[in-house]
């Protein structure tokens, strides 16, 4: 089967249009018009950033192409690329994109009311506050800090965009696995005692520490292993 001349792919930043290298302009225009027609109600009135990837166009061809697109949508930023740079493929928020969220003092926060149960996953670019428990099998992934007002028994990943300043705090910190930026720590083997105080996990000197929420409260927790990924 011949490769399709044009493939549309929606991304967070707009529309990526993959154009086959060996296709004729007429083929491309026809295929694009067909796809735009079928998606007409979807595109209507929207401002869309377009990134053309693949075949190279001269300026005459470019204007013909954009002419078709502009009949169906308002054009945002338009770019032509020979291939997609690898960092644009990341689904997860990456460091470059989320540089604005590097601090831990403040920022956008998402509140979740209720328990994050097995199989459920909460993802947010900023801070996450769970008013409930996080059960084994549940995951909480934040660009910033994670605070659990209950027991944290599942997986928490704070500072997922590389923010090593981020912390994870919970009233009862018993995670299956704890990650901050690139650090991963897991619960020790065997039974552990239920912590008596709220605890905070953070990174200091390339190590992941877990300590009571205030220095001097409760006993020092020293059981978490640390491995840099």
């Amino acid at each position: 089967m011949k490769e399709q001349p044009v493939v549309f792919k929606g991304t967070r930043n707009g529309l990526n249009i993959y154009v086959a290298n060996d296709s004729d302009l007429s083929e491309i225009l026809e295929a694009a018009a067909g796809k735009l027609q079928s998606g007409k109600p979807f595109f209507e009135g929207a401002t869309v950033n377009l990134t053309f990837i693949g075949r190279e166009f001269d300026s005459e061809e470019k204007s013909q192409l954009l002419d078709i697109f502009s009949r169906y949508m308002k054009l945002g930023e338009v770019a032509f690329k020979s291939r997609l740079e690898p960092e644009e493929k990341h689904e997860k928020p990456d460091r470059d994109h989320y540089d604005f969220f590097s601090g831990i003092e403040e920022g956008m926060t998402r509140f979740i009311r209720g328990t994050v149960r097995s199989g459920q996953r909460v993802i947010y670019d900023g801070n996450i506050v769970i008013i409930g428990d996080v059960n084994p099998g549940g995951e909480v992934i934040a660009g910033g800090n994670i605070l659990v007002l209950g027991a944290l028994r599942g997986i928490a990943h704070a500072g997922v965009t590389g923010n090593a300043e981020a912390v994870v705090a919970s009233y009862c910190l018993q995670p299956t696995q704890l990650r901050i930026a690139g650090f991963i720590a897991r619960a020790p083997e065997g039974d552990t005692e239920k912590p008596l105080y709220p605890e905070v996990a953070f990174i200091k000197d390339q190590q992941l520490y877990i300590e009571p929420y205030l220095p001097g409260k409760g006993r020092q927790a020293d059981f978490i292993l640390n491995n840099k990924v």
Binding site: R117, G119, N135, P136, G137
Partner: peptide, 14 residues
């Protein structure tokens, strides 16, 4: 049992 409780938790979520 831990496994059954884990599945029950998933079911409660669903």
């Amino acid at each position: 049992e831990v496994s059954a409780v884990r599945d029950a938790d998933r079911i409660i979520g669903l």
